[in-house]
């Protein structure tokens, strides 16, 4: 059903005005209309020029960081990166010092990967189940619970850090990976449940009802009807969560034991006790950026679709 509507957007558009079709039909056509509007608006040369200027402004600091990471220590510390163009001096000494120095960067890289992947998979799995229950199962106190979960987003995570660490110490798990996975999951769940719940509510009720009429139970509906439709939503939240965990410093600082320290902590410490080695920061930052950059570029298709899917909720 959803296939027909997505594969024939033009006919759906045409139908929308003439016939009052099923509700989801109208909604989709409105979505199409909106994207067409957006397209015409954004393709004006002024808008393009503005977007270009913004893009350049936004990229200049990153570019500066990139140039800096390849300059020798003395040059970094005495003059700005833009002087690179008048007196280019290229050196790999920063990368060499970061990768082959005292800091175990490879180990920290693996730690970050080992922390990040479960910290993305666990909250998404739990949030999908919870969101399904909130969206499609009737039970007593559902609305109250949903509002409670929603309200949890308001609680700043900082106030939970020390009590949580105290609990971990009491449970005796404070030096394991679980504290990091659990903490990231705990802090991600409210938003994940809320977002995925909204995505699920977007799926036409008739679709679920049709599946039910055909004899499908909750499990079948979840896996065979909803999950394929939710892929863009899951992917976009996964990117968010991935970037958040990958770049997280606060939770790692509070909970990670010495041998489980991720990249962010190592980079924070690269500058040395008195900040004398700060020329290494740009190189360290670039090494840490590679994976998020690859993930973002690789999944950006989902990212945009996921954002749009959320945008037309209503």
């Amino acid at each position: 059903m959803s296939e027909t509507s997505t594969s024939k957007p033009t006919s759906a558009l045409a139908d929308a005005d003439a016939v009052a079709g099923p509700s989801e039909m109208r909604k989709l056509s409105r979505k199409e209309q909106r994207s067409i509007d957006a397209k015409t608006r954004l393709t004006s040369p002024w808008a393009s020029g503005f977007a270009l200027v913004l893009a350049i402004l936004w990229s200049v600091p990153t570019f500066g960081l990139f140039v800096t990471s390849f300059r020798p220590e003395r040059a970094i510390k005495t003059e700005g990166w833009w002087t690179f163009f008048t007196a280019p001096e290229v050196s790999l000494e920063n990368y060499d010092a970061v990768l082959n120095g005292n800091t175990d960067f490879a180990g920290a890289f693996l730690n970050t990967v080992v922390i990040t992947i479960p910290a993305v998979v666990i909250p998404i799995t739990l949030a999908l189940l919870a969101a399904y229950a909130f969206a499609w199962m009737d039970f007593k106190g559902r609305n109250f619970l949903f509002v409670a979960v929603f309200a949890l987003q308001v609680v700043p995570i900082q106030i939970a850090l020390i009590p949580l660490l105290t609990q971990y110490v009491n449970f005796g798990i404070d030096s394991s990976l679980w504290v990091l996975w659990l903490s990231h999951s705990i802090f991600a769940l409210p938003l994940a449940i809320f977002l995925l719940h909204n995505f699920m509510m977007d799926i036409p009720r008739s679709l679920i009802e049709a599946a039910r009429v055909d004899g499908a139970g909750h499990v079948k509906i979840f896996f065979q009807v909803l999950l394929p439709l939710l892929v863009p939503a899951i992917a976009s939240f996964a990117i968010f969560q991935f970037l958040w965990v990958w770049n997280d410093l606060l939770i790692a600082l509070t909970f990670a034991s010495t041998d489980l320290q991720p990249l962010t902590l190592k980079i924070g410490n690269l500058a040395g006790s008195r900040g004398s080695e700060w020329q290494l920061l740009s190189a360290g930052a670039f090494i840490a950026m590679i994976v998020p950059l690859a993930v973002f570029l690789g999944l950006q298709r989902f990212f945009v679709r996921g954002l749009l899917a959320g945008g037309v909720k209503g």
Binding site: L161, I162, L165, T166, Y168, V169, N170, D174, L253, T254, T258, L265, G268, N269, A271, S273
Partner: peptide
């Protein structure tokens, strides 16, 4: 174990009991 955030983190650890 060394950390640039030693002063703050030491008190976090004392508070949390490790």
């Amino acid at each position: 174990e060394g950390s640039r955030d030693f002063e703050a983190q030491l008190q976090v650890r004392l508070q949390a009991g490790n």
